[in-house]
Structure formats: structure tokens, C-alpha cells
Write a protein that binds this DNA or RNA. Structure first.
Length: 425
RNA sequence: GGAGGGAUGGCUGAGUGGACGAAAGCACCGGUCUUGAAAACCGGCGACCCGCAAGGGUCCGUGGGUUCGAAUCCCACUCCCUCCGCCA
């Protein structure tokens, strides 16, 4: 949520920021008009309340000294009715204003490249060599089904298309990777591990910015008015919702959760296999930081995600997303993409974003600065990393001519010493 | 699912119609003392909104109601705790 003061004081900068995203900016004028209306009403109602408070105190005194206050009480009753009517107007304008502001996306940071679509994203670095094969590398679907570790057909029968099913060493590999990543973030990077609910209420979804705009992209439990999380960012960030954080910043949290996305509108795209699915596992990192440090924290967050891939010996590149491609709540975002030879393409496995105070304002997450004054924290999060695509990359990069897969050395201890997924006899 | 109890500031906790934004303690900040620290003592210390300011307003789980006036009375809801039942 944008600070209303920011809209009042520099509406042009907000308009420019919205245009850079390709978003409409008439909303700025609507907000300013409602804001003006609201303040006018407030002045009126507060003057009357002030009078009521003063007179009511007098009535108390007069009654104690035994005087008759019937007349003035009647007057006050009328004043009370006027106040009630004005209060209702204020509430009405307030909620309209609030709802409107909730629909406005964050303003891109000055360092976010300007551009309307992914073609304007900037590759900031690459790491590792994309592997050369002396045979035609297969895709993970063909590999995984032959190895007996992926079963899309049975998964579709028990649920529907787009829900993956891992089996045997495939599911063990995914479990090992979760453990590997969590251990790294907890032991090396200083994150506190959390195992949160994966179903949350509407306030939480609004706090991180999924609601109101992304309602159609999420799975919903209408009987209970709850939602299935599209990312662990939601429960983890909402850990401090409506709190003044009473511990030193920064606070780092990491969580493994399944994630659920309807991918409405993505139907029809070529998305065979595990690359775009309705349910996937992910290890997420979330930071609550002092605003002065948030851009440094973004770089180290990105570094934490990169280290996972470096340890696994996978080739990746880092993209700085342009203003038209960053998410609703983000001010700046890096994506990390893994090379997947079977796809002959890069796969996004991590998004590391600085939301500045956008989520903190919505969710009411504050801290006390060195003067004891309450301020909104800055929140950040990044995938560290998303699993099915990581598994895809490991399978496709590690494949041998005979269809077996050699696993990265770093994961072998987590596999109980198993270093290869063999073809079934 | 049944019965009962509860929700007040960063925390604990007093407050049953007017002088209560709210006692007290803890925590925190500043000071005195100390070589330094601790202790002790003194002082400060809720959040949010409107306003250039002076100042004003709102907030005691949430939403309604009664009243000139509500933390306090009434209604509904939410959440938490205890016991019983069921259950992974």
C-alpha cells in the first residue's frame, strides 16, 4: 500500500511510476479527490465532537451540583445525531479510499530498469557453463517417466492435470533438496526456520498483496473463508502482522511449504511436466529489515539463493526485472534462472524482491527506530529456491546417455550416499 | 460438538457510567552515582488521524446499540484458555 502522503505530496512521481509498469494512473486523481473529501469531513465532525466533549463534561459538573440540564441535553442529542451522520460519511469515504489504494501497485525503485515487458529485463550476471552433451539431451518428462520417478498420468487421475507426483528416488531427491536448502539458510545464512500453516485468511492475503487483485489465481476454501497459499511469503510475512516488532532488526525467516496456484489464464500454454504446475514445493526466505538497509539486504538475499545453485553446480543467470515485469507489491526484483538442457531454455527458480514498506503498510508491521518512534519495516523475500524446476534442472543436466542421472555431489550426503538415479532393470 | 472462563499499552495487570488514554510493576530511553558496569535514586515513556501551528479527534478484541457522556451497560461476532466428547 502506498503512503497517502506520497500520493498527496508527489502525485507526478507516482503517476510516472505507474506508467512505467504499464498501469493506469487515473487512480491517482481519484485518490486525491477522496482524500480531500475525507479531510473536509474530518474537520467538520471533529469540531462537533470537540463541542460535545466539552458540553458533556459541563453536564456532569452541573448534575453534581444539582442543577437541571434537560435543555442542554436535548440540544446535545441533536448534535449527537449530526455527528452520527457525519461519522457515517467519514466511514464511507474512508473505506472507499482504502479499497482504492489497495488496488494501486508499488512504485518501482529508481534502480529498476524501465520497460513494459520481459524483453526489457537485464541479465546482470551468469554463473557456470551451460553443459554440452554428446547426445541429444532429453526433457525431464521423458527421463523421469523412464526412471519411474515421475507419474503425471496417475496424478492427473487422482487430482487433475498440473499436479505433479514424484516416486521413489524422485521424491527422495526432492525431500533431500528441501533439507539441504533449509540447513544452508539456517546454519550458514542466519535464518530462523518456520513451518507455517499453508492455508491463511483474507487479511493475510491482503497484507502481502495477493488480495484483492490475485483472487482468481488462488485456490479458495469458501466454507471457511480461507485460501491456500501461493507462496510461503504469505504466512511468513504475516507472522508479524499488526505488530510492532520487539526484537532487533533484521529478522530472517525461512520456510518450506507447498504452494498452490490456479494459473488461471495460463491454460493452453505449452507446460508439459513440472515446469508450470498447480502445486509445488518451495523453500522461501523472508526478511524484515531497517529501511536504510533494505537494498543491501536484497543483494545478500539474492546471494543466499545463488549459493544454493552454486553448491549444486548448476549453471544459472541473474536477471534484473524491468518495471513492467515486477510483481504488484515489488519495488525491485531479481530473478534467477537455471539452464535446463532438455528444454533448451532458462527456468525461473527464484524471485528475490524488495517490497520496501508496501507490504508493511498493508500488514501493519512496524519497529521502533533509535528514537523510539514507530516506523514501517521493509520486507523482502526470495525463493531459495523453487523445487520442481530445480529437480527438472538436476535431471536434465545430470542425465547420461543411458538415461540414468548423476546427482550433484552436494546432495549425495542428503541422499544417504546415493549419487545416481539408475535406469530400472 | 457440549459446558464454563477470558480479551485493557512492548509485556504483566488495575479499572463497573463523567476528572480515565487509562493505576502499579516490568521493559525501554535520559540523568545522578561509579574507574567501568550492576544496584539504587531522579526524570521520561502508547498508537493513529486532522492541522503551518496552537490545538483537536479517534482507539481498552471486532461490529452494532443505549446515553448529554461508555474501557465500564446491552446485543451480535471473532479469537484465546480450561474441562468433557470425538479424532490424526
Amino acid at each position: 500500500m502506498l503512503d497517502i502522503k506520497r500520493l498527496r505530496e508527489c502525485p507526478d512521481a507516482v503517476r510516472t511510476g505507474l506508467s512505467a509498469r504499464g498501469a493506469e494512473n487515473e487512480v491517482v486523481d481519484q485518490v486525491l479527490e477522496l482524500d480531500r473529501e475525507r479531510r473536509e469531513l474530518l474537520t467538520q465532525v471533529e469540531t462537533r465532537k470537540s463541542e460535545r466533549n466539552r458540553v458533556s463534561k459541563d453536564i456532569g459538573k452541573l448534575k453534581k451540583s444539582g442543577e437541571d440540564t434537560t435543555g442542554v441535553q436535548l440540544e446535545m442529542r441533536e448534535l449527537g445525531a449530526r455527528i452520527a451522520a457525519l461519522d457515517e460519511d467519514v466511514r464511507d469515504v474512508d473505506s472507499r479510499l482504502h479499497e482504492l489504494i489497495l488496488t494501486i501497485p508499488n512504485i518501482p525503485s529508481a534502480t529498476t530498469p524501465v520497460g513494459l515487458d520481459e524483453s526489457a529485463n537485464v541479465v546482470v550476471r551468469s554463473h557456470g557453463e551451460t553443459k554440452a552433451f554428446d547426445f541429444e539431451p532429453k526433457g525431464h518428462v521423458e527421463l523421469g517417466e523412464a526412471l519411474g520417478i515421475l507419474d503425471f498420468h496417475r496424478a492427473a487421475r487422482m487430482t487433475s492435470a498440473g499436479f505433479p507426483l514424484l516416486l521413489g528416488l524422485g521424491s527422495r531427491l526432492q525431500r533431500a533438496l528441501i533439507q539441504f536448502m533449509l540447513d544452508m539458510h539456517v546454519d550458514k545464512h542466519g535464518y530462523t526456520e518456520m513451518l507455517p500453516p499453508i492455508v491463511v485468511n483474507s487479511k493475510s492475503m491482503t497484507g502481502t498483496g495477493q488480495l484483492p487483485k490475485m483472487a482468481d489465481d488462488m485456490y479458495r476454501l469458501p466454507e471457511d473463508d480461507l485460501w491456500m497459499i501461493p507462496t510461503a511469503e504469505v504466512p511468513v510475512t504475516n507472522y508479524f502482522r499488526e505488530e510492532i516488532i520487539d526484537r532487533p532488526l533484521p529478522v530472517y525467516m525461512t520456510a518450506f511449504t507447498p504452494c498452490f496456484r490456479r494459473e488461471a489464464g495460463a491454460a493452453g500454454k505449452v507446460n508439459r511436466g513440472m515446469i508450470r504446475v498447480h502445486q509445488f514445493d518451495k523453500v522461501e526466505m523472508v526478511k524484515f529489515v531497517d529501511p536504510a538497509t533494505s537494498y543491501d539486504e536484497l543483494e545478500s538475499l539474492l546471494g543466499n539463493a545463488e549459493e544454493v545453485l552454486q553448491e549444486l553446480g548448476l549453471a544459472y543467470r541473474v536477471l534484473e526485472l524491468c518495471s513492467g515485469d515486477i510483481s504488484f507489491a515489488a519495488a525491485k526484483c531479481y530473478d534467477i534462472e537455471l539452464w535446463a538442457p532438455g528444454q533448451n531454455d532458462w527456468l525461473e527458480v527464484s524471485s528475490c524482491s524488495n517490497f520496501e514498506d508496501f507490504q508493511a503498510r498493508r500488514a501493519g508491521i512496524r519497529y521502533r527506530d533509535s528514537n523510539g518512534k514507530t516506523q514501517f519495516v521493509h520486507t523482502l523475500n526470495g525463493s531459495g529456491v523453487a523445487l520442481p524446476r530445480l529437480v527438472v534442472a538436476i535431471l536434465e543436466n545430470g542425465q547420461q546417455a543411458d538415461g540414468s542421472v548423476i546427482l550433484p555431489a552436494a546432495i549425495v550426503p542428503y541422499m544417504g550416499g546415493i549419487d545416481r538415479i539408475p535406469m530400472p532393470a
